[in-house]
Amino acid sequence: MIGKSDDIIIKTIARIFVPFLQLYALYVIMHGHYSPGGGFQGGVILGASMALLLITHGYDELKRRLPEGVLLLLGSLGVLIYAGIGLLCLILGGNYLDYSQLSVILGVDAAHARSLGILGVELGVGFTVMAIMYSIFFDISTGGILPEDQRREGRVEGER
């Protein structure tokens, strides 16, 4: 399933679709605080676009664009952003995730600081959800056996 597709129509359609999908996902994340959507939905759409690239362009291409180390780093970076903003508010004297306390650092008034704070939290949620959704799909579709392991052992399984 994660092999490269031979069909030129499928590959071309996927190559045209993926930038628009990712642009839409970024729009959903950035507008999460005043329209429907948010970090979770935008992250899911980003992960789905990565899954589309994986099933059409193959594992080798995706490994070059998004290595597993970067994936793990993104997944934990999102949690760090979320917890970091919350703890920053706690350090500045407010409650956990009380964004109005950020106005001291950002130099804006409290309402604007709330808007920027929730944008940061949405970005963190989006990173984590994208990385975890993509890696769940990757683990299910490979079954935990990577193509490079099979190549090293000298047995090449037929592409599904």
């Binding site: 429907p36 992960g47 789905a48 899954a51 959704m133 299910i140």
Partner: peptide
């Protein structure tokens, strides 16, 4: 409930179907 509808469309109809298709193929 537009926000719930958005979540349903992206999570359940989008990535849930992809994950189930991958599970069926395996």
């Amino acid at each position: 409930a537009v926000d719930v509808a958005f979540t349903e469309a992206s999570v359940s109809a989008g990535i849930g179907t992809i994950l189930l298709v991958a599970a069926v193929l395996k």
